[in-house]
């Protein structure tokens, strides 16, 4: 009985961490920078495809490919920020919607052109396949790996954004751009770097997710996961890393519980939890304001 419950708990948390890893980049670009970045899924897809290409074609080991993906997608994000996104920070959010959906459409066609319309999957090392013994439980190895990576990233982000000078600069810039500028902060550079961070995280999340999702294909950024990303970020509270983590874990657990105890309502569970939570706390679990 206890084993059953713990296994369920573990699986729910692992799925939650997966959602966290995929959504955390959006928490940075949309939550912190206030940019409704519906192209988040396109950056995640790019990360996924790059990860696949690096590991299967270029023969880069899986663990080495991950930081490479983070840097590469971050660089792409920075490039797009400087040329395009930057013009729209002061535009209404509906303009963001149209612009980023346009970019996503282009990315979908671009991915079809480069990688074809078939699904592509990631080959992970053997030690990440099958089951591992963890605290007396038989658990999926890749799930355990996701939990560890997710925890590390959450810690790094919370520390990096709350406790460092750069983090303070980011928060100052978002809160009051003009004041930050007059304090001598290079606002443009801070935004570029933040956006690069968000994109890099999106890419990393994408690369980590492929093996769990089963594979990716060009329609990925327009699919149901976009909804999940938005749910995690808003239920957590815009701009809150811990909030996003809490929301993602909660959703993962709710999904696992529904599927295990009441499969009939499994397809409703995540949406129900979201609606109830947002009715209760419109600014999210850990939202400011």
């Amino acid at each position: 009985m206890a084993v059953e419950l713990l296994t369920l708990l573990f699986n729910g948390l692992a799925y939650g961490v997966l959602l966290f890893l995929m959504a955390i980049g959006l928490s940075v670009t949309m939550g912190m920078m206030n940019f409704v970045n519906l192209a988040h899924g396109a950056f995640a897809m790019l990360g996924g495809y790059l990860g696949i290409s690096l590991t299967t074609r270029a023969g880069v080991p899986f663990l080495a490919a991950l930081p490479l993906v983070f840097v590469a997608v971050g660089a792409v994000g920075a490039g797009i920020e400087v040329t395009l996104y930057r013009r729209f920070y002061r535009s209404p959010q509906l303009t963001h919607v149209l612009f980023t959906i346009g970019l996503t459409f282009m990315a979908v066609a671009g991915a079809t052109y480069v990688w074809g319309s078939q699904i592509a999957a990631m080959r992970v090392p053997d030690w990440l396949i099958g089951q591992t013994m963890f605290l007396g439980l038989q658990v999926g190895s890749y799930r355990l790996f996701l939990l560890l990576v997710g925890g590390a990233i959450a810690l790094a982000l919370v520390f990096g954004l709350e406790r460092t000078r750069f983090g303070a600069m980011v928060r100052a810039t978002v809160d009051n751009r003009r004041m930050a500028q007059s304090l001598g902060i290079d606002v443009g550079r801070v935004f570029s770097l933040t956006f690069a961070l968000g994109s890099g995280l999106a890419g990393l999340g994408g690369a980590l997710a492929v093996n769990f999702l089963g594979g990716i294909q060009p329609a990925f950024p327009l699919g149901y996961l976009l909804v999940y990303f938005l749910i995690v970020v808003t239920v957590g509270g815009l701009g809150s890393t811990l909030g996003a983590l809490a929301a993602a874990l909660l959703l993962g657990l709710a999904d696992a519980a529904a599927k295990f105890y009441a499969p009939v309502i499994a397809s409703f569970a995540i949406y129900l939890v979201m609606v109830v939570l947002l009715m209760w706390r419109p600014h999210g679990i850990l939202g400011r304001r």
Partner: peptide
């Protein structure tokens, strides 16, 4: 038929710009 998303996306981006 395979790549029309690209052009439609481009139209949206151009309209925004």
């Amino acid at each position: 038929p395979e790549y029309w998303y690209f052009w439609l996306g481009l139209i949206l981006v151009l309209v925004v710009l």
